[in-house]
């Protein structure tokens, strides 16, 4: 089991009190593709970031189990976490415009990721970086390696991000809304790329998204989150015929070209869901 999370709770202290954002989430993940869907603020990203211990120090994290491949993340030191981050689990963020360092060349950023975990000389790392850029289907990797992030498009930036996170050959890839900031046509290309690489390398994938049809096509299993809780977990192929009223509500809110509605329904929230 790559990821084992039992009863995860994440909260933030503020001046006025304590806010519980994630309220007891459990999930298991092996070498498969798990999608997490839910509206903004449902705790999807927090859950993923807690697994990598990437949340600010002031965050209060509790769990019965929070383990990556048997390693207890809650008690792991920074040094142990650095052996997981990047090396064993890659993390793709939403918008390459902000998630790539603006003053370093693309080649340097990918090479750094490779060299941190694999060692070797600067030159070897740069060669490996160019090779990786080629693997994510960038046409002229030599040129792109010398460019800065602001000089490339969003889709290209996300390919660079993927190359960077795959450099140390991780076993798990966490993708936090990897296509939300991209154009629709580019979205499909990036997802296809992720799918190919995950299959090729036999990795586990945790895909966070709020695009339900996308997740149902792309993943093996889907977890639906609402307000820091898991509403239901089901096979991805069954997502579009889900029974839970929250999931049904989300599905009903999607506009359709085939059956257009004059006015999209508003999600009716049932306090019962939070019990």
């Amino acid at each position: 089991m790559l990821v084992d999370i039992q009863n995860l709770k994440i909260g933030f202290k503020s001046r006025t009190g304590f806010h519980q954002a994630v309220k007891g989430v459990s999930l298991k993940l092996g070498t498969e593709k798990l999608g997490i869907v839910g509206e903004s603020g449902s705790g999807k990203s927090l859950t993923a970031r807690a697994l990598m211990k990437l949340l600010p120090k002031s965050t209060v994290i509790e769990a019965d189990t929070l383990a990556f491949d048997g390693i207890d993340v809650l008690s792991a030191s920074e040094r142990q976490m650095r052996q997981i981050r990047g090396k064993r689990a890659g993390f793709i963020l939403q918008d390459p415009k902000y998630s790539l360092n603006p003053v370093k060349t693309i080649g340097a950023q990918v090479a750094e990721s490779w060299r941190t975990h694999k060692g070797g000389s600067r030159r070897e790392a740069l060669e490996a970086a160019v090779n990786l850029l080629e693997q994510v289907q960038i046409r002229n990797p030599q040129v792109v390696a010398k460019s800065y992030p602001h000089e490339v498009s969003g889709g290209m930036g996300q390919r660079v991000m993927i190359a960077m996170m795959l450099a140390p050959d991780p076993e798990l890839l966490i993708a936090d809304e990897p296509t939300s900031a991209l154009d629709a046509t580019v979205q499909a290309e990036i997802l296809r790329l992720i799918e190919e690489l995950v299959a090729e390398r036999g990795m586990g994938l945790l895909l966070i998204s709020h695009d339900l049809p996308l997740v149902s096509h792309f993943c093996d299993r889907v977890m639906v989150m609402y307000s820091g809780r898991v509403m239901e977990e089901l096979k991805a192929s069954e997502l579009l015929s889900a029974k839970h009223p929250y999931t049904r509500g989300l599905l009903n809110c999607m506009p359709s070209l085939i059956h257009p509605k004059d006015r999209l329904p508003v999600l009716a929230r049932d306090p019962e869901w939070l019990k």
């Binding site: 970031r49 990598m52 990437l54 650095r82 052996q83 997981i84 981050r85 990047g86 090396k87 890659g90 993390f91 963020l93 939403q94 918008d95 902000y98 998630s99 790539l100 360092n101 603006p102 750094e112 990721s113 941190t116 975990h117 991000m161 960077m164 996170m165 140390p168």
Partner: peptide
């Protein structure tokens, strides 16, 4: 910045 999260996610010190 988000790129700081990226740098940490890469496993840098």
């Amino acid at each position: 910045g988000e790129y700081v999260i990226t740098a940490r996610a890469k496993g840098l010190t």
